[in-house]
């Protein structure tokens, strides 16, 4: 289990958090304008990278705040953590 540095609470055990899948997939502003394929792309398609992945996490059993994490999925090294709305660090 890893330690996660919640941007609002500080370092906490992983068991207080929940993962929320790939980050930076914005909900389309005008869904009705999209074709079935475009909508399906948003709805279903997610990356599953062995290596550096941008993810959403929530401090579910803490402050309930969502934030972003850059994690190497092969060794669980957390490269960066930043708040929702903030720009991802350049790779």
């Amino acid at each position: 289990m890893f330690l996660i540095n919640c941007p609002y609470c500080g370092e906490r055990d992983q068991q207080e958090f929940k993962a929320g899948g790939e980050a930076h997939i914005e909900r389309p502003k005008q869904p009705t304008e999209l074709s079935d394929d475009q909508w399906a792309e948003y709805l279903f398609m997610r990356k599953n990278i062995k290596g550096v992945q941008f993810e959403r996490w929530v401090h579910a059993h803490g402050c309930r705040k969502w934030f972003n994490m850059v994690r190497d999925t092969s060794n669980d090294e957390i490269k960066a953590i930043y708040k929702m709305g903030e720009k991802p660090p350049s790779q």
Binding site: E26, R27, V58, R64, K65, W66, M84
Partner: peptide, 13 residues
């Protein structure tokens, strides 16, 4: 509650 918070914080801040 979790789902509503998710939308509120991440899609409609």
């Amino acid at each position: 509650l979790g789902k509503l918070e998710d939308y509120l914080q991440t899609e409609w801040p």
